[in-house]
């Protein structure tokens, strides 16, 4: 049981690293505009597939956690999701008035913000439950 919990946790970390590697690689490759349209689409889909696998492993890892750790993950996701929605609302409303900062809030930065908000939520929740 304990071994299975550790294996699931480790698998989700490994898949998060695989996702990060494919995402960075795809970004580097696609930025150079060297590939054709079909190849570009295939390269763009790779990190998405890696992310899907990561989420599958993450959900399994959370299911194997004890209830306090599950609560921490649950609240981290809620806080991360809420902060992301708040940012998107603000950006959308600002865009209506032609105020936009694409160099700070482009798609690539939004992905980073999502992760950042999740980790903020994780730290807040960890502190709340003292684990």
């Amino acid at each position: 049981m304990e071994q299975s919990k550790k294996t699931e946790g480790r698998a989700s970390i490994i898949f998060s690293l695989i996702f990060a590697a494919t995402y960075l690689l795809a970004t580097l490759l696609l930025k150079r505009h060297l590939l054709g349209q079909t190849a570009s689409i295939l390269i763009a889909i790779l990190p998405v597939i890696a992310f899907a696998f990561f989420i599958f492993k993450y959900v399994k890892a959370v299911a194997n956690m004890d209830e306090v750790r599950q609560r921490v993950q649950f609240e981290a996701v809620i806080i991360g999701f809420s902060l992301t929605v708040m940012l998107l609302i603000a950006l959308f409303l600002l865009s209506l008035t032609d105020i936009s900062y694409p160099e700070w809030f482009g798609y690539s930065q939004l992905v980073i913000f999502c992760w950042l908000f999740y980790f903020i939520g994780w730290l807040v929740s960890k502190k709340k439950y003292g684990i």
């Binding site: 004890d66 209830e67 306090v68 609560r71 709340k128 439950y129 003292g130 684990i131």
Partner: peptide
Amino acid sequence: GISRQSLNSIETGKFIPSTIL
């Protein structure tokens, strides 16, 4: 079957455990 940190959270009253726990 929980972690020591989780037990500490319950013992200090920061987390209310489920009925089964």
